[in-house]
Write a protein that binds this DNA or RNA. Sequence first.
DNA 1: CTTTGTGAATGCTTTCACAGCA
DNA 2: TGCTGTGAAAGCATTCACAAAG
Lengths: 222, 222
Amino acid sequence: MTARTSPESARDIPEATVARLPVYLRALVTLSEQGTGTCSSEELAVAAGVNSAKLRKDLSYLGSYGTRGVGYDVDYLRYQIAREIGVTQDWPVVIVGIGNLGQALANYSGFRSRGFRVVALLDADPARHEAVVAGIDVRPFDELERIAHDHSVAIGVIATPAVAAQDVADRMVACGITSILNFAPTVLNVPAEVDVRKVDLSIELQILAYHEQRKTQGAATA
Amino acid sequence: MTARTSPESARDIPEATVARLPVYLRALVTLSEQGTGTCSSEELAVAAGVNSAKLRKDLSYLGSYGTRGVGYDVDYLRYQIAREIGVTQDWPVVIVGIGNLGQALANYSGFRSRGFRVVALLDADPARHEAVVAGIDVRPFDELERIAHDHSVAIGVIATPAVAAQDVADRMVACGITSILNFAPTVLNVPAEVDVRKVDLSIELQILAYHEQRKTQGAATA
DNA sequence: CTTTGTGAATGCTTTCACAGCA
DNA sequence: TGCTGTGAAAGCATTCACAAAG
């Protein structure tokens, strides 16, 4: 036990670094499955699609988990990152809105394989309450409070149409959910202590279109 | 016509600004549908979920489209942003991988409503070639080259499992696609001139888990 | 008087380049 | 010798605060 790495893990990791830790984690899992025991910052950086200076800087916020002249022990670093992110513990998750996207999310193995456990699928439409998706019953949205309470749900996923999303978010906040992943194409108003991350398919395409337009425009003008 | 705003639109808009333009566009569409003819930077900023100084700075990269003391004409600004992004033109798109997620994407109205036209749904699994999704036949993946050529496709969407994604990307690049939206949880290797944007559901959840862990940990320790 | 558009200041992120350690 | 960990430098992004314009 060195004094450098405090047992409770370092404070204030930059947000840009936090966003990359899951990428490193995935790369380490892949390396581990391939039987790689040790890797250099350069090798891991290539696997994660970043440059090695950035990778080393990022890892330095967590502590000193490498060995100079050698590199990183894949399984050890993997565990340390998983612990830092918090995916060594169990996170019960509720998904609201079981259309095509909600079903895709419920079936997505990446959710269950990394500490996330879907405890309920909710939908306001009674026609969907008959369905079983990914082995889980679709339940009425009204059961949100009970389920959130019974399972101590802290993370909610919104996969409803845009018009319903704010109401769903309000109800989630009211029953103690403090992290929301929002797939509905709308801005959510929530209290400051609630974290919202947004995934917007149409926005991603528009960003690509902007750059694509520049490419072809440049070819025509230059 | 002022000299300030060049007809061919300004150069080098910062990437962070480009990523917000679609958000502003959506807010403007909503305001327009509500019958709002004019709005201040403060009103638009609230609707878009940013602060007004940032919004004004962002818009200043496009030109001077506001009126001091008054604000912005909603429909005029909306058109200017749409043109800047490139969504006033038609973008043929091909989606590869028609599982739950691919179907959700094909059915997503936000794609078709903003200049994006799904010209083909492709899947390697023959069992899926019988299906019709969102009114479009699912076709064999082998038809990629022909379809990309016939429709001048520049944007491709990958919604396959991770193992297939790199092969799909290689084939896309080979047939002239230069923008890729990747939903598979893997790092893609592509030439520098090809733009890749990645949407990763599991990474978003992990980022939320990190912050969630901090909240509860803080409550216990402090 | 109101609100935009923007230099200047601040804060954050990435990259460089090398001291320090194995 | 080889590779990590990290100050220092450079590059971006956000915020401030106010002059300019209507």
